[in-house]
Design a protein around this nucleic acid. Structure first.
Length: 817
RNA sequence: GCCGGAGUGGCGGAAUGGCAGACGCGCGGGACUCAAAAUCCCGUAUCCGCAAGGGUGUGAGGGUUCGACUCCCUCCUCCGGCACCA
């Protein structure tokens, strides 16, 4: 009898062995084979079973690749800058660096206990100067090429995190991190010109067939390209014209007013002359609203007449100019032409304020005089539009655009929803922006030779408001690199998404000191072949990374211009929230965190791995249940127990039928596990292995010892990527030397599987009436005959009109009468 | 509101247009045991039937097809994204 299955005793030993033998180490000086990567985590400290899903899936695939003899780069590092460290510093008076390093230690230990292998020689942490100096170096290059700039504009300010945020980091009007409603502030800040890459970011998506459609769609929507036309309207009594952006020039004869965003510069001209006494107050109220407040008004339209008129350049018509709450300064020109008949918002506004509604596009069943009860925004025939009447709306768009260009009062124009990436942060724990301000020379970049600009350590956290860097005399006091006089150092740090936008290229040769990346090696090892991470990064991280990779490409530093060939998004693991009672993502505040420690000490890491991979397809969201863990553990117990069966049967010749059945079941399992893992479905791969052990259990008394042993050893190899510790242990007990990682990946005999008997389904008029077991590869006639016999009673006295035969699958009779 | 994705036993989930419910959990019954746990065996969509067998069944309704969980149309529900983007 084998000893009882005792994961506590087995697992630490193998973890030590793998680390010692260096299975994950790969020399990138050699040729590339495969580069796989998990999104590097923020070192928050404790990992729960939900985090485990990502890493366990990655490790499963990694081990399979290793067994297949592939040379795989599979590194791990830390997205180590960010607010939690700084908040911990404020709260508990620990330096962020110390806090971060301690957390990294805990997380590495957790990875080890999960049995997860990485090439730790390539570990990087973005908070170390050796790493972030290259953020600064890249920033200098972008500054030189005009891709980084300092600009003043209304920006999102989170009063709780006390910093500005990029657009991508504002979710439903609140801060992505803490949910606090963001305020708009006019500040001078650092931006990266991602909008210059908008079209290339869109076009690149078409070359990523192995990314989830969902992610590509989200990015397309975020970039929000729209083709339209800028049209200039003359304004009565004002010298300069007013430019509006529209995607529907074809409706311009239907414009009955013009609307301005409250922030539009022209609005101030009319403050004194507008007819409504509360005009100024109205404008000020709108300007002071947070984005959230404006959105919370739920689409209610409000506006005021400015008292001024604009002239429609097409018709010469005078149109009243209004200020309206639904016009956004951030998009287009901050001014629109309003066509109530063909735009829902304009219709609502016109109805509320009694402005005219004029039909200019006649949709199906409409004529020039149709009275609308709601806006019609579809295509149709152009009517009431002077010389353009009679055209189709699409033709008219082109014709009117060309006309405006000829006459010089308009131009066709492409606009984007995407804004430039605001990278300034008024926080300590990030990469210092390498710039100084000199009284004589103004803004001066810190020369490459003086990098890195290192974060000071003489910092007092907590207490007073604002960025602690501003209070560090040693940091702010700088020397102007141009004139040598005293200067003030920039205290803003970079958005941490900067760090994660290029780390994958650094991993190829992470410790070089004289360059950001090793161009020669990166040319061979990039792009990442398989990138695994959560869908929450669909826009933020993945769009910034694509952007910076294109920039690196333009600088001649990397080979292609897309960094990740295959993207795999794993779903969340949820559990019942103690607060809401609903299924939610695990988090401390919801009291639904399952820590792996107790689980591992009770059942072992292999059990957690099996359960995590068995719960469902990894891209789907799944609920964690304790009963399911038991099932996984029972499976491993059964695998362990098969040792006895194999030992007892060692010398038995066995019955031919049972032996054949074991053999076929083994090959079938190999094929299924192989196919299922290749499509990232370990759940069905595990099911296939369960079927194999069920067959082994059924045939254990009758099959030959050799076949049982062969089946068992094959199973161990198939199972190793999923449950590495227990399989290594049994492999040794069976008398093998070394590791399963070097034991090869099993192959299957396709010919053997192909010659097995098949079961034909036999249908009569589409209903299943019988099944027949036949030899594979049977022709239509022979299969038809066998099937006819099986369903004779259903065919009796009827005329067979048609027979459909799908080889090795089914025969279908269509009968009459 | 717009754009995606998903609805299959008591539960998690399987099924290149070809035997719906693999595999697991749970449950019921049995074996072992003084007993329990563990383990093992049998059963488990639903309705009629002692059974053999048959009817029904993949959110609802229609359609294409010899044949639909799978493809098309309409609708419902849930989840996710965007949300006055002109």
């Amino acid at each position: 009898m084998a000893l009882p299955y005792d994961p506590q005793q087995i697992e630490p030993r193998w973890q030590e062995y793998w680390a010692h033998e260096g299975f994950a180490a790969v020399d990138t000086a050699g040729e590339k084979d495969l580069y796989m990567l998990m999104m590097f985590p923020y070192p928050s400290g404790d990992l729960h079973v939900g985090h485990g899903r990502n890493y366990i899936l990655g490790d499963c695939l990694f081990r399979m690749f290793l067994m297949q003899g592939r040379k795989v780069l599979n590194p791990m590092g830390w997205d180590a800058f960010g607010l939690p460290a700084e908040n911990a510093a404020i709260k508990r008076n620990i330096h962020p660096h110390e806090w971060t390093v301690a957390n990294i230690g805990r997380m590495k230990d957790q990875f080890r206990r999960w049995g997860i292998l990485y090439d730790w020689d390539k570990e990087i942490a973005s908070c170390e100067p050796e790493y972030y100096r290259w953020n600064q170096w890249l920033f200098n290059r972008m500054l030189e090429s005009g891709l980084a700039y300092r600009g003043k504009s209304p920006v999102n300010w989170c009063p709780s995190c006390r910093t500005v945020l990029a657009n991508e980091q504002v979710v439903a009007g609140g801060c992505e991190r803490c949910g606090t409603p963001v305020e708009q502030r006019d500040l001078e800040q650092w931006f990266l010109r991602i909008t210059a890459y908008a079209d290339r970011l869109l076009e690149g998506l078409d070359r990523l067939p192995d990314w989830p459609e969902k992610v590509k769609l989200m990015q397309r929507n975020w970039i929000g390209r729209s083709e339209g036309c800028d049209v200039r309207f003359a304004v009565e009594a004002v010298a300069e014209p007013l430019t509006v952006f529209t995607t529907r020039v074809d409706t311009i004869y239907g414009a009955t007013f013009v609307a301005l965003a409250p922030e539009h510069p022209l609005v101030e001209r009319f403050r004194a002359t507008a007819p409504d006494p509360d005009f100024g107050e109205f404008v000020d109220t709108l300007k002071n609203q947070t984005r959230l407040q404006r959105e919370s008004e739920g689409g209610d339209k409000a506006g005021r007449f400015t008292g001024a008129y604009a002239v429609n350049p097409f018709s010469g018509e005078r149109l009243p100019i209004w200020v309206a709450n639904f016009v956004l300064m951030e998009y287009g020109t901050g001014a629109i032409m309003s066509v109530p008949a063909h735009d829902e918002r304009d219709f609502a506004f016109a109805t509320k304020y009694g402005l005219p509604i004029r039909l200019v596009i006649a949709g199906p069943g409409m004529g020039p005089d149709t009275v609308l009860s709601e806006a019609y925004s579809g295509p149709g025939a152009v009517v009431n539009s002077g010389p353009f009447s009679g055209l189709a709306s699409e033709e008219s768009k082109a014709a009117m655009g060309a006309f405006a260009e000829e006459r010089g009062f308009g131009a066709r124009k492409v606009r984007y929803r995407l804004r430039d990436w605001l990278i300034s942060r008024q926080r300590y724990w990030g990469t210092p922006i390498p710039v100084v301000y000199c009284a004589d020379d103004g803004l001066v970049p810190v020369p490459d030779g003086q990098l890195p600009v290192v974060l000071p350590t003489d910092i007092e956290f907590g207490g007073s408001e604002g960025n602690p860097l501003e209070r560090s005399a040693s940091f702010t006091a700088a020397t102007c690199p141009k004139c040598g006089k005293p200067a003030r150092r920039e205290t803003d740090t970079m958005d941490t998404f900067m760090d994660s936008s290029w780390y994958y290229a650094r991993f190829v040769n992470p410790h070089i000191r004289d360059a950001m990346i090793d161009r020669e090696r990166v040319a061979r090892w990039m792009p990442v072949d398989l990138y695994i991470g959560g869908v929450e990064h669909a826009i933020l991280h993945l769009m910034y990374a694509r952007f910076l990779y294109k920039v690196l490409h333009d600088f001649g530093m990397v080979p292609g211009d897309e960094p990740f060939t295959v993207l795999f998004n794993q779903g969340m693991i949820t559990a019942k929230s103690k607060v809401s009672g609903k299924l939610e993502k695990m988090s401390k505040s919801k009291g639904n965190v399952i820590a792996p420690d107790a689980l591992i000490s009770r059942y072992g890491a292999d059990t957690e791995r099996v359960y995590t991979l068995f719960m469902g397809p990894p891209e789907k969201e799944v609920e964690w249940t304790d009963d399911g863990v038991m099932g996984a553990h029972r499976f491993l117990q059964r695998v362990w127990g098969l040792q006895d069966i194999v030992a007892e049967s060692a010398d038995r010749t066995g019955a031919a039928g049972a032996t054949e059945e074991i053999l076929v079941a083994t090959h079938r399992a190999v094929k299924r596990v192989h196919d299922d893992l290749a499509r990232y479905h370990p759940n069905t791969a595990i099911a296939a292995m369960m079927e194999l052990i069920n067959t082994m259990a059924e045939q254990q008394a009758a099959a030959s010892g050799a076949a049982l042993r062969q089946a068992y050893e094959t199973l161990l190899r198939l199972l190793h990527p999923i449950a590495p510790h227990v399989t290594e242990e049994i492999w040794r007990i069976l008398g093998h030397e070394g590791s399963l990682l070097g034991a090869g990946w099993p192959s299957f005999d396709a010919a053997l599987l192909a010659k097995q008997q098949v079961t034909l389904a036999v249908q009569v008029n589409g209903k299943l009436r019988a099944t027949v077991a036949v030899e594979p590869g049977l022709g239509a006639e022979a299969a038809g005959a066998a099937a006819r016999e099986a369903v004779a009673k259903w065919l009796e006295g009827k005329e067979v009109a048609k027979v459909v035969h799908v080889p090795d699958r089914m025969v279908s009779f269509v009968v009459k009468g």
